[in-house]
């Protein structure tokens, strides 16, 4: 990490938020004998996107999620070919989740055409409180088009592992019954090639999404899957 960036809180969060994924990507590149010695955390290597480009793309999860109507929802098949933004949070989340969801809702309201049909998937990780009904009520505050998914804790854990995201931690209940929920703050972007090449940290603005979504639809990603 460069010192000059440390002073910029946003840039720091942006870089740090995906450091783990970036490191994995860099290792993969090295293993493939790629000439590039660049770390995926270097902002200059992010192709002008506001997120962090992964050295090695991730597949859409096929975990056994359930949608807000209670029906099974396989992300890999249900959203195949569609630009999809996926994040993990909880309905009582006061800071990170509402900011993400409002920024995305505001962005999509201002867009037209294909990019306006970007799918947004919010996975509720607080399985006690994030029931399908609670998820629907919560997401409808911003958009009836947002897809809400839940699953048993072990299914969510497995999906997070596959997506190389940090695990969820649910704290012990306090005297008043409240408890801490720790969750990944990143947003994964799955592009029409059904891969996630880029991860967005917390703090991305509407104008950055408005610039990035049309590019994500058409970007010709180098084939790193061979």
């Amino acid at each position: 990490m460069r010192d000059s960036r440390m002073g910029n809180r946003r840039a720091f969060l942006r870089t740090a938020g995906v450091a783990a994924l970036g490191a994995v990507g860099a290792v993969s590149l090295a293993a493939c004998g790629d000439e590039s010695d660049s770390a995926a955390t270097n902002e200059d290597d992010n192709l002008g996107f506001a997120g962090t480009v992964l050295g090695y793309p991730l597949a859409r999860p096929s975990a056994a999620f359930v949608d807000t109507s209670g029906a099974p929802f396989n992300v890999a098949t249900e959203t195949a070919g569609k630009l999809t933004l996926m994040l993990f949070g909880y309905t009582s989340c006061p800071d990170v989740c509402p900011v993400h969801l409002n920024v995305l809702a505001g962005t999509l309201e201002d867009l037209h055409g294909r990019e306006a049909r970007t799918k947004v998937i919010f996975v509720g990780v607080d399985t006690k409180r994030d029931t399908p009904e609670a998820m629907r009520t919560y997401l409808d505050q911003r958009s009836p088009d947002f897809i809400g998914l839940t699953a048993a804790p072990d299914v969510i854990d497995e999906a997070l592992k596959q997506l190389m995201l940090p695990s969820v931690i649910i704290g012990e209940p306090r005297a008043d019954g409240s408890y801490v929920v720790e969750h990944p703050s990143q947003i994964l972007a799955f592009t029409p090639d059904d891969l996630c090449h880029i991860v967005y940290p917390f703090g991305v603005r509407e104008n950055e999404w408005r610039t990035d979504l049309p590019r994500l639809l058409d970007y010709d990603w180098p084939d790193t899957t061979r």
Binding site: A19, V96, I169, P184, F202
Partner: peptide, 15 residues
Amino acid sequence: LHETAIESDGRASMR
């Protein structure tokens, strides 16, 4: 008064 912390791997927590 609350504070969200975002760890280096992106995990968000609040205290």
